[in-house]
Design a protein around this nucleic acid. Structure first.
Length: 135
DNA sequence: CTGAAGGCCATCG
DNA sequence: ACGATGGCCTTCA
Protein backbone atom coordinates (compact mmCIF):
# COMPACT_ATOMS: atom_id res chain seq x y z
CA UNK A 1 0.00 0.00 0.00
CA UNK A 2 2.69 2.45 0.64
CA UNK A 3 2.04 5.78 2.04
CA UNK A 4 0.55 8.94 0.81
CA UNK A 5 2.35 12.13 1.34
CA UNK A 6 0.66 14.11 4.03
CA UNK A 7 -1.24 17.06 2.72
CA UNK A 8 1.13 19.92 3.07
CA UNK A 9 0.66 23.62 2.90
CA UNK A 10 0.72 23.17 -0.81
CA UNK A 11 1.86 26.19 -2.68
CA UNK A 12 2.70 28.02 0.48
CA UNK A 13 4.20 31.43 0.34
CA UNK A 14 5.67 33.44 3.13
CA UNK A 15 3.71 36.10 4.91
CA UNK A 16 5.18 38.82 2.77
CA UNK A 17 3.62 37.16 -0.20
CA UNK A 18 6.89 36.31 -1.84
CA UNK A 19 7.77 32.70 -2.36
CA UNK A 20 10.32 31.64 0.15
CA UNK A 21 13.74 32.40 -1.29
CA UNK A 22 16.87 30.82 0.09
CA UNK A 23 16.29 30.10 3.70
CA UNK A 24 15.15 26.75 2.48
CA UNK A 25 17.88 24.56 3.84
CA UNK A 26 17.41 26.15 7.22
CA UNK A 27 13.72 25.40 6.98
CA UNK A 28 14.43 21.81 6.14
CA UNK A 29 16.55 21.45 9.22
CA UNK A 30 13.98 23.21 11.35
CA UNK A 31 11.31 20.86 10.10
CA UNK A 32 13.41 17.76 10.53
CA UNK A 33 14.13 18.88 14.05
CA UNK A 34 10.42 18.46 14.75
CA UNK A 35 10.33 14.77 13.95
CA UNK A 36 9.87 12.86 17.20
CA UNK A 37 11.71 9.69 18.08
CA UNK A 38 10.15 6.61 16.62
CA UNK A 39 8.71 8.45 13.65
CA UNK A 40 10.13 8.95 10.20
CA UNK A 41 9.47 11.03 7.13
CA UNK A 42 10.68 10.67 3.59
CA UNK A 43 12.73 13.27 1.79
CA UNK A 44 9.85 13.85 -0.54
CA UNK A 45 7.48 14.26 2.34
CA UNK A 46 9.64 16.97 3.88
CA UNK A 47 9.96 18.63 0.50
CA UNK A 48 6.21 18.59 0.01
CA UNK A 49 5.77 20.50 3.22
CA UNK A 50 8.01 23.34 2.17
CA UNK A 51 7.50 25.65 -0.78
CA UNK A 52 9.78 25.25 -3.74
CA UNK A 53 11.72 22.29 -2.47
CA UNK A 54 12.41 18.95 -4.04
CA UNK A 55 13.25 15.73 -2.30
CA UNK A 56 16.74 15.86 -3.59
CA UNK A 57 17.28 19.25 -2.10
CA UNK A 58 16.19 17.91 1.22
CA UNK A 59 18.87 15.29 0.89
CA UNK A 60 21.33 18.02 0.02
CA UNK A 61 20.26 20.03 3.00
CA UNK A 62 20.97 17.15 5.30
CA UNK A 63 24.30 16.28 3.77
CA UNK A 64 26.83 19.03 3.28
CA UNK A 65 26.33 20.11 6.82
CA UNK A 66 29.07 19.62 9.37
CA UNK A 67 27.54 19.02 12.74
CA UNK A 68 29.04 21.14 15.49
CA UNK A 69 27.12 18.93 17.84
CA UNK A 70 26.94 15.55 16.16
CA UNK A 71 23.40 14.35 15.73
CA UNK A 72 21.87 17.36 17.36
CA UNK A 73 19.52 17.19 14.41
CA UNK A 74 17.53 13.96 14.01
CA UNK A 75 18.54 13.64 10.39
CA UNK A 76 18.37 9.89 10.72
CA UNK A 77 14.59 10.09 10.85
CA UNK A 78 14.43 10.95 7.18
CA UNK A 79 14.57 8.05 4.75
CA UNK A 80 13.84 7.59 1.08
CA UNK A 81 10.47 7.02 -0.54
CA UNK A 82 10.80 3.26 -0.32
CA UNK A 83 11.09 3.43 3.41
CA UNK A 84 14.70 2.43 3.29
CA UNK A 85 17.86 4.11 4.44
CA UNK A 86 19.59 5.60 1.44
CA UNK A 87 23.22 4.69 0.94
CA UNK A 88 25.52 7.35 2.28
CA UNK A 89 28.42 7.73 4.67
CA UNK A 90 26.34 7.43 7.80
CA UNK A 91 23.78 4.93 6.58
CA UNK A 92 24.72 2.18 8.99
CA UNK A 93 24.61 4.61 11.85
CA UNK A 94 21.28 5.89 10.64
CA UNK A 95 19.72 2.48 10.57
CA UNK A 96 21.12 1.64 13.96
CA UNK A 97 19.59 4.77 15.41
CA UNK A 98 16.22 4.06 13.91
CA UNK A 99 16.22 0.53 15.22
CA UNK A 100 17.14 1.87 18.63
CA UNK A 101 13.95 3.91 18.45
CA UNK A 102 11.91 0.83 17.83
CA UNK A 103 11.72 0.96 14.08
CA UNK A 104 12.06 -2.39 12.37
CA UNK A 105 13.21 -3.12 8.86
CA UNK A 106 11.94 -6.02 6.81
CA UNK A 107 13.95 -8.34 4.66
CA UNK A 108 14.01 -5.78 1.90
CA UNK A 109 15.38 -3.24 4.34
CA UNK A 110 12.23 -1.23 4.43
CA UNK A 111 10.35 0.08 7.40
CA UNK A 112 6.59 0.13 7.84
CA UNK A 113 5.24 3.52 6.84
CA UNK A 114 1.84 2.77 8.28
CA UNK A 115 3.36 2.44 11.69
CA UNK A 116 6.04 5.08 11.68
CA UNK A 117 5.18 7.81 9.25
CA UNK A 118 5.37 11.26 10.77
CA UNK A 119 2.35 13.37 9.93
CA UNK A 120 4.19 16.66 10.03
CA UNK A 121 3.84 19.59 12.40
CA UNK A 122 0.60 21.44 12.86
CA UNK A 123 -0.04 24.46 10.70
CA UNK A 124 0.94 26.61 13.66
CA UNK A 125 4.49 25.59 12.99
CA UNK A 126 4.28 27.00 9.51
CA UNK A 127 2.70 30.21 10.66
CA UNK A 128 5.41 30.64 13.25
CA UNK A 129 7.96 30.21 10.50
CA UNK A 130 6.42 32.86 8.36
CA UNK A 131 4.88 30.30 6.08
CA UNK A 132 1.23 30.32 5.28
CA UNK A 133 -0.82 27.33 4.26
CA UNK A 134 -2.21 27.97 0.82
CA UNK A 135 -4.96 30.45 0.38
C1' DC B 1 14.63 -4.14 -12.40
C1' DT B 2 17.77 -0.34 -14.80
C1' DG B 3 18.70 4.26 -16.25
C1' DA B 4 18.34 8.98 -16.83
C1' DA B 5 17.00 13.58 -15.78
C1' DG B 6 16.20 17.45 -12.83
C1' DG B 7 19.29 21.67 -11.35
C1' DC B 8 20.24 23.92 -5.07
C1' DC B 9 23.19 26.21 -1.87
C1' DA B 10 25.85 25.63 2.66
C1' DT B 11 30.33 24.77 3.54
C1' DC B 12 35.27 25.15 2.98
C1' DG B 13 39.83 26.67 1.24
C1' DA C 1 35.01 37.99 0.79
C1' DC C 2 34.53 34.57 -3.32
C1' DG C 3 34.64 30.62 -6.24
C1' DA C 4 34.73 25.62 -6.18
C1' DT C 5 32.90 21.63 -4.39
C1' DG C 6 29.93 18.07 -2.78
C1' DG C 7 26.01 15.46 -1.75
C1' DC C 8 21.10 10.95 2.60
C1' DC C 9 15.94 11.70 -3.97
C1' DT C 10 12.04 10.88 -6.80
C1' DT C 11 9.65 10.05 -10.75
C1' DC C 12 9.04 8.44 -15.19
C1' DA C 13 10.15 5.47 -19.36
Amino acid sequence: MIDRLPQAPHGATDTTGASVPARRYALVRALVAEIPAGRVASYGQIAAMLPGLTARQVGYALSGRRDPVPHALPWHRVVNARGAVSPHAGAADQRRRLEAEGIAFDRRDRLDWSRHRWAGPGHVWFIARGLAPDR
